[in-house]
């Protein structure tokens, strides 16, 4: 069983890499073949050499952005799950919290950025807050959907045996909800890095978004793409890590 799992995983990885190589080849060929100028599309090879020559800077920026995204992600997940559990435990709160959360989330995250920058300054705090806002709602919605998936009859059955609300939550609702929660967490990984980068573009002391912003203004498109590729790598690693946890602990159950 374990062996087949591994061979499947390695096949997926191999194919993922093959897909990326295919894209890179098409990209390189069209950039060179059509002689596209760098401000339209730089070739993959020039981006890679740009990444190598600027590795130190990019690495520092990547660490900065990753730290913001991770911190915001953790805070956002906790808030999202806590809020979902809370309104499941206290049905009366649902009528208040759900519309409120919907309202807050339906405002594009970027709209809050000037306010958040104003309130939390240009440092890491504002990015962490922005990421947390963006992530918490995704997690909140997924968790609610998951917790609601429980069969009403099962709840009634367990409760007839004298189980408390908390026990129902822990024994029944959370395990049932887990696949959906993790799916939400998986989607949020990508969003967290993105929101951190977009907020950095509006004002920051460092990070990949800051590098991109500066590079656009200095017309250094190779650097823009280099930073984008580093950002994608972070998101992908993050996404991969959550997918790994998901496969290991959720479907394994």
């Amino acid at each position: 069983m374990m062996v087949s799992m591994n061979s499947e995983t390695s096949r997926q990885i191999a194919r993922g890499i093959a897909g990326a190589l295919l894209l890179a080849a098409i990209w390189e060929l069209s950039a060179r073949g059509l002689k596209l100028p760098a401000y339209v599309l730089p070739s993959v090879s020039s981006i890679l050499s740009g990444m190598v020559s600027d590795a130190g800077n990019l690495f520092a920026a990547a660490q900065f952005t990753a730290a913001e995204a991770l911190a915001g992600y953790a805070v956002g997940c906790l808030i999202g799950m806590a809020a979902a559990v809370l309104i499941t435990m206290i049905p009366a709160a649902r009528a208040v919290v759900l519309p409120l959360a919907t309202a807050i989330n339906s405002v594009p995250v970027v709209a809050y950025s000037p306010l958040v920058l104003l309130w939390f300054g240009m440092g890491m705090a504002s990015k962490i807050v922005m990421v947390a806002i963006a992530v918490s709602f995704t997690i909140f919605l997924s968790t609610i959907a998951g917790l609601d998936r429980v069969d009403r009859r099962s709840v009634d059955l367990i409760r007839s045996f004298g189980a408390s609300r908390l026990a129902v939550l822990w024994r029944l609702r959370l395990p049932t909800a887990l696949p959906l929660i993790i799916a939400g967490m998986r989607v949020s990984t990508v969003r967290s890095v993105l929101v951190a980068i977009v907020t950095e573009m509006l004002g920051a002391y460092g990070g990949l978004g800051w590098v991109i912003y500066q590079a656009v203004l200095q017309i250094d498109f190779v650097k823009v793409w280099a930073a984008i590729i580093v950002a994608s790598a972070i998101s992908l690693a993050f996404f991969g890590a959550i997918s790994f946890i998901e496969r290991r602990y959720v479907f394994w159950k």
């Binding site: 096949r11 997926q12 194919r15 993922g16 093959a18 897909g19 990326a20 295919l22 894209l23 401000y39 339209v40 990508v190 890095v193 993105l194 980068i197 977009v198 573009m201 978004g209 991109i212 656009v216 823009v224 984008i228 950002a231 994608s232 972070i234 998101s235 992908l236 996404f239």
Partner: peptide, 28 residues
């Protein structure tokens, strides 16, 4: 499945690109 395994990671990657960095390309 082959298509999924080849391209799904790239779809995820495509979502990591901040469109705001590519204003000019979008207009172009």
């Amino acid at each position: 499945t082959l298509l999924r395994e080849l391209f799904f990671p790239l779809f995820v990657v495509s979502q990591t690109i901040p469109v705001i960095a590519f204003g000019a390309v979008v207009v172009l």
